[in-house]
Design a protein around this nucleic acid. Structure first.
Lengths: 272, 272
DNA sequence: CATACGGCCTCCAGTAACGGGAGAGTCAAC
DNA sequence: GTTGACTCTCCCGTTACTGGAGGCCGTATG
């Protein structure tokens, strides 16, 4: 009977010496005998089959414990290969589905990013009038400083993250732009209405508005607001509260990004 | 500025306390301040955004080191989200492809197993005559005992495992059934001819043969051989060497299985 | 004969992203 | 004063290995 030393056995099976020692320790593939003098491992030809089976099963993503178990039970009466293959296939397909969901998510993010880039192409932005569709949003209203809006956004994201399908927005319930003690509502467009404590889910009405894109950090928003309000006054429009501020691109998205590139849309709704 | 303790922050973000401490240690998400007296971590609302981003990126299978790096570089000029998303998508699609290959392999094994089961359905087997197609095989010829055939099979499997597309077979170059010092060749059907040292790849000719299925351990093969030779003599056929032995189901496949269920086909080729 | 080299051994550490648990300090309420 | 909830640090375990240190064994070469 041919006896191989670990190095030769490694070359034949394609398993590294380290791996073979590890398999020995784990009981998956024990050498046929071990020299008690120097501890050398010796493998015989019979073990090649087992090694092949292990390699195959590993390539099918079975764990070592599963493999050990399967190989030990494989001569039992109740042992059914088809069952095992089916189970493993189920597990593998779950993985495929998981990765496909990730892929879809990446696609979506990719498209969104491209869209906002398209919008941000212009050098400067002009005030314009436009009509906005109604949309379902989840909102948390609060008083305080705008910089505190991170928390309500995070709360919404936590509870309804799965259903968010648009850019975050802020509703301003004050007539003018205020720094401290403002009355505002952090909103996220959602696809589904789910009751959550402390979050108000409702349909935001459609309407006609004066819109202005603003590029740059939020500290400079005031100048854009001034431009928008100028336009409103010039046209003699009457403005409705709340006004909206849509964060097309900002720190709340994925990356902090460059504040000079932040993109925000101011929407002042017209009473008709 | 609202300061959250780790427990509250955990509830808001959905990250466990353990995870938050781990993120702190890894530098992915450091608390805004740490009480030097008691070591308590305090998180402020600003970090909620970062936590959200981390959760999102984790769900897209970015590693923590990647995330740290991305979040740190995200305000640089050269930072391009689209690039990053594309790269990650490539990585994810590799995973999908990998799992799909595994899935296909499982399907294949599944079908093969079902086929042999179909063949093994009968209680007893009768000698029959049939025509066998030609097939490309990789073989290693040797002299010795049949029980030593594990090694050549393993060697073929190691070099050509990717191209194996059928059941292993043994060619017998002796005129009668021998135990020791037999002259035989271990063969594997392969889909591609690749030159490998010590392995002979060639087309096995088609031909008409006397075939008999044998169920049970190899030690009992002799009785089946006797039956087949009886038939040959009765018909007055002349037999060609080598004869073939196809292992439809045996220990060399995946699992050792139950020797009582081993299935072997004896093929004695007729000189026409 | 000494030594260098390759092969083998054991033991330890590290990987990724946490989870579990021990043992101890902290804080507010009752 | 005490209870219970919360927090801290430190260490171990997970999976399937890989890498390295330090040392034994057998053979080939100077």
């Amino acid at each position: 009977m041919a006896q191989y030393r670990i190095g030769e056995f490694s070359k034949i099976t394609g398993l590294t010496v380290k791996t073979l020692r590890f398999y020995d320790e784990q009981g998956v593939l024990k050498p046929s005998c071990v020299d008690p003098e120097n501890g050398y491992r010796y493998y015989d030809a019979e073990l090649l089959t087992r090694a092949r089976a292990i390699t195959l099963l590993r390539s099918l993503e079975f764990s070592l414990t599963e493999i050990t178990d399967l190989l030990n039970r494989s001569d039992e009466e109740s042992f059914d290969v088809l069952d095992i293959l089916r189970n493993q296939q189920d597990a593998i397909r779950l993985q495929i589905a998981r990765y496909q969901r990730i892929d879809a998510k990446l696609c979506q993010l990719f498209e969104e990013e491209q869209e906002t880039r398209q919008m941000a192409k212009h050098e400067t932005f002009a005030v314009e009038e436009k009509t906005v569709e109604s949309q379902l949003v989840a909102g948390i209203r609060m008083k305080g400083r705008y910089s505190d809006c991170g928390e309500p956004f995070a709360r919404i994201g936590k509870s309804l993250g799965r259903y968010i399908n648009g850019k975050p927005l802020l509703l301003h319930y004050d007539m003018e732009y205020r720094e401290d003690d403002a009355d505002f509502e952090a909103c996220m467009p959602v696809s589904k209405s789910i009751e959550v404590e402390g979050i108000d889910i409702r349909e935001l009405p459609a309407g006609r508005c004066v819109s202005l894109l603003h590029r740059g950090p939020y500290e400079e928003l005031r100048t854009s607001y001034a431009k928008a309000f100028d336009y409103v006054q010039q046209k003699g429009f009457e403005i409705q509260i709340p006004s909206r501020e849509v964060f097309l691109k900002g720190p709340g998205m994925i990356f902090r990004g460059n504040p000079k590139k932040y993109l925000t849309e101011i929407q002042l709704f017209i009473v008709e």
